[in-house]
Amino acid sequence: MNTRKEQIIYWLIRMVMYSIVLVIGYILFDIVWNGVPALSWEFISEYPRKGGAEGGILPAIVGTLALLVGTIAVSLPLGICSAIYLSEYAEQTRFTTMIRLAIITLAGVPSIVYGLFGLGLFVLLLNFGTSILAGCLTLACMVLPTIIVSSEEALRAVPRGYRDASLALGATKWETIRTNVLPYSLSGIITGSILGIGRAAGETAPILLTVAAFYLPRLPNSIFDQVMALPYHLYILATQHPEADKVLPLQYATALVLLLLVLGLSLGAIFIRIHFRKKYRW
């Protein structure tokens, strides 16, 4: 009886897992199958022509890369510092519990809300205009909660014994954090952060209102310039283009490029993780 029940549960869980893999596998297959034929060197190295119906998507690739780099540059230091404060310095009071709760709640706020927030604060109030700067800051706000939560978890996972040993040798608190807490938690911090940032790479709503250009067949001149971006370009091709059916292969190819970009980011995170795991095995 009992083993029968075990068997049923085992198969149930197994089927659920396989069905998820199946769905994701189908999506990937669909994109690769339909995207590869339209993918070419011209497609990723040329400017778009005729409203995106012909030519390549170079400005969108550059735009998304610029947004990614900017978002990482803003959110990673801010997020890691906040996490260090929460995990190492702040006393555990009702106030810090509330801050933590607020951060977790922010992680669940819909991305369009961040878009509106960015529009109000960065684009209008701070007068950055629709620009890369405003877009990066908006995306950074959106991924900050994820970075803070995962970084704090990674910091807390470092055994207390390392901190005690370091302090007992006469190291100051900051020396202890810098040499004996941060290095050991870096693999966890980077992994969690990159996953969050990878999600931001594919977001459309926040950049729609703060940076993305509908059609701008040139490269940006400065951080106050607008850019095209892959997810927004995809959205335009799929819904706003007068000949949506004709550009279908281009949509698939754009989606494929975006996927490859995020995949590259994740691979980078994995390599960093392996590197630090090897260096500090604990």
């Binding site: 055994p159 014994g161 040993a165 006469g170 190291a171 500090y280």
Partner: peptide, 20 residues
């Protein structure tokens, strides 16, 4: 405190070498 801990070393119950 830093000077104090230079003069007063401590060994803990659970050995805690750094992962270095």
């Amino acid at each position: 405190v830093v000077n104090l801990r230079r003069k007063v070393g401590m060994v803990f119950q659970k050995s805690n070498p750094f992962p270095k």
